[in-house]
Design a protein around this nucleic acid. Structure first.
Lengths: 267, 267
DNA sequence: GATTTCACTCGCACACTGTACGATAGCCTC
DNA sequence: GAGGCTATCGTACAGTGTGCGAGTGAAATC
């Protein structure tokens, strides 16, 4: 069968004899450029210039730009640390993992577009996955539920953090503080919400509060919801006799055309 | 104070007298191109060709490519429908909203990179937000919690769906079925997981199952967790005397440097 | 020691991108 | 007819990723 996943990690790297330029330096330089100036700033020409080498020399060590990004991405995965299961409770491990990712994303805002899109099969990504699955195994999840829990946790963190990153990049571009930018945006927002008075009122209220703590609370809120839900599922599994206490059926038939809406049921 | 949010929606559009080319057609053509061939296929030259007009004619109706994408994005937001609060329970509304987004994202895979990154203040985005907030208001959430609930829900859906979209794009490129691609990827995966035997074993197991239903179950799993968590929070608020029944403190101090990890506490 | 081989560097060129600019053309009002 | 406005579009510029082939130096082979 043909191999359909092409990745830096699938092809063996070129034998190194005495390179004046190496993958390590290339990846480090790329990371610095990306962190400092963002995704658009990384061009092969600029990278070559920064390395003091010819532009196309890079292509000896790396097949193309995508592969380079795979390498840098795995470097970031290396910063997603999972506490060992002996060290703390699963809930603390998950929480700390989530906050850790959040911080790492703040350090490397440009990755957000690649996570989940670029294959994550580098050594660091693997180590992370292994630790995360172990955490949920320790918690009491079995089989696929371990993966589901891990994937849901990461999905949530990436999903909430993405808008925060774009907010921060706006801060950088304008040089304003969060609250200044917030204030400067309000009129636009209120005008946009002209047709929805409740929204407009709500936005007017926002002007008065500290955006950064509101965002932090937002993160906390969703994370707690999700962890509570996980915990409830564990407890339910432990004592299967306890009924759910909800009226409506909770699961759309999982086998039908993947992703169909469950349809509207009257409550 | 200077205006810091620049968007198509903030500047009034050019007065239309008798254009042979209009925003509506441009946006529609762009959407078709994007849906059919993906983000990379949308260049101003190709768009002009498709419209049978000069490339730079487009710039009369739209300031630049980013603004064009804002317009197309809002069109997609128009497909994120929220059931009215009279129509069903909040839980059903949220579920149906989540599945609806998922389906819309499958129709327009390219948007995933823009959501949360490009300002969503178009009329459709506003209508959606208004409906979503109303749903959570109806559920019993108050103040910022309404926004937190809405934002968490969207964050989760975008987060889980992103990898699915990249999977589907891979299917399109290779022309394989999900299960064929899955099988063809396994050796690579197992090799990548060589250092983590539990992971390798797990991947080997995956070979035997239907990937699409596994993914659908994954979506369901996280959504249920999150909604259960929301519901628990509502019940807790309704009867504040009932304690949580968990040992460890649940909230890192929210006021400190936004996003700090809660630190490791022994369990 | 001479020759060949191979790891590695790099200049050039190609096809492509977004878009600024200025030249047109048709219409409306004076 | 003159001038101004809406609208279209050709050309040009600076930038992109990268294929190709020529060049360099050191190690391996004869």
């Amino acid at each position: 069968m043909k191999e359909h996943l092409s990745s830096v990690w699938t092809r063996e790297r070129r034998a190194a004899k005495s390179p004046t330029l190496g993958r390590a330096q290339i990846v480090r330089a790329a990371m610095e450029l990306l962190d400092a100036e963002g995704l658009d700033a990384l061009s092969m020409r600029r990278l070559g210039a920064r390395l003091g080498s010819g532009t196309t020399s890079i292509y000896w060590h790396v097949a193309n730009k995508d592969e380079l990004l795979e390498l840098v991405l795995d470097e970031v995965y290396g910063e997603f640390t999972v506490l060992s299961v002996q060290e703390t409770t699963w809930r603390n491990a998950a929480t700390s993992f989530a906050y850790g990712i959040r911080q790492a994303l703040f350090r490397h805002p440009w990755v957000i577009g690649f996570i989940g899109t670029t294959p994550a099969i580098g050594p660091n990504a693997m180590r992370m996955m292994s630790g995360l699955v172990a955490t949920f195994d320790h918690a009491g999840f079995r089989g696929l539920d371990q993966d589901y829990a891990a994937s849901t946790l990461m999905a949530y963190v990436f999903g909430v953090t993405a808008p925060e990153l774009s907010w921060r990049s706006m801060l950088d571009r304008t040089g304003l503080t969060s609250n200044e930018l917030n204030a400067s945006i309000q009129p636009t927002l209120e005008k946009a919400a002209a047709d929805h008075p409740e929204l407009a009122a709500r936005y007017a209220e926002f002007r008065r509060m500290d955006v950064d703590t509101a965002r932090a609370l937002n993160f906390e809120f969703g994370l707690t919801c999700f962890l509570d839900g996980l915990e409830a599922r564990l407890n339910r599994a432990a004592s299967p006799l306890a009924s759910r206490g909800r009226a409506e059926p909770d699961t759309p038939a999982a086998g039908d055309e993947a992703g169909n809406a469950p349809g509207r049921r009257r409550g």
